[in-house]
Amino acid sequence: MSDPISLRGMIPHLALPLALAVMLTGFSAVEPRSLSAGNLLNVLEQSSYLIVFTLAQTVVLLTRGFDLSVGMAASAVSVAAALAAVSAGPAAGLAVALLLAGAVGLLNGTVVALLRVNPFVATLGMLNICLGLASTLSGGRPVTGVPEGLTTLFYSGTVLGIPAPVLIAALCSLGLALLLHRTVFGRSLYLTGGNPRAAEVAGVRVRATLIGAYTLCALLAGLGAVMLTARTGSGEPSLGGSLTLESIAAAVIGGVSLRGGSGGVTGAVLGAVFVTALSNGMNLTRVDGNVQMIVLGVVVVAAVALDRFRDSR
């Protein structure tokens, strides 16, 4: 740990908030509305979904893993939960969501940890399976008629004026931060990602840690899926299209290393806010959707290149 007072040690932690501030100022020069309180709150609320998915991705990235199935798992969970909620009420919907997400994560973790399949391939296979599941269950159409209870709890409700999605994202961030820094499991994630052999020698139960990581990741993604389902009021088979790549991009922009073992909740949250603010700003300044794709691509590459540069110093 660097001396907290030295400015140099602070630079890596200040770079992203600074970039965020510069970006917002830039957008406000073109479109004054982008800095209005209403829009900033809007960005925060929009971010809460990506934050949950980015936290999910962060858990596996810490173990030097990957989860390409996050987005499609979210689609499958959204459809299954909506179907259950429509026919048997909100509680059944939640239960199905938890069970399905847990099963997906457990399977991912088992294949990675016990069969030692490369995480990329394991979760790529799972992506296909979830995609098939989501489109079969839904027949390709949105599942409408999600009960009010679910929408209130995960979307429209407020506590002390704070919208439910923001509150859930904050609770998840806090919970994960405590888990990562205060529990054996959390420390095991870092050790496993930093150096799996050393971790094994040091007595970390690497396989159990990996299975736990993929399961936790899928459960968080399942929660995100329920939040998105509540927002649209329907189970959407196309929900997860770009979520996987956005969650990886946000985590990496937030300084979570692809080489495992480094990164944290603060970075992941900031990364997710950054990506959301970028797309919100571009929407407000009427940047063409296709140009937005190009910009996101450039930002991702730049962020990783900067990360390497920081490392090599």
Binding site: L245, Q292, V301
Partner: peptide, 27 residues
């Protein structure tokens, strides 16, 4: 060049260029 010279992770570089290339194709 990004992978060999800048030492950026291939996954992230090609994720970025994927986004950029399909953006250009659509544009």
């Amino acid at each position: 060049l990004c992978v060999a010279v800048l030492k950026v992770s291939p996954f992230m570089v090609t994720l970025g260029t994927m986004s950029a290339a399909s953006g250009v194709a659509l544009l």
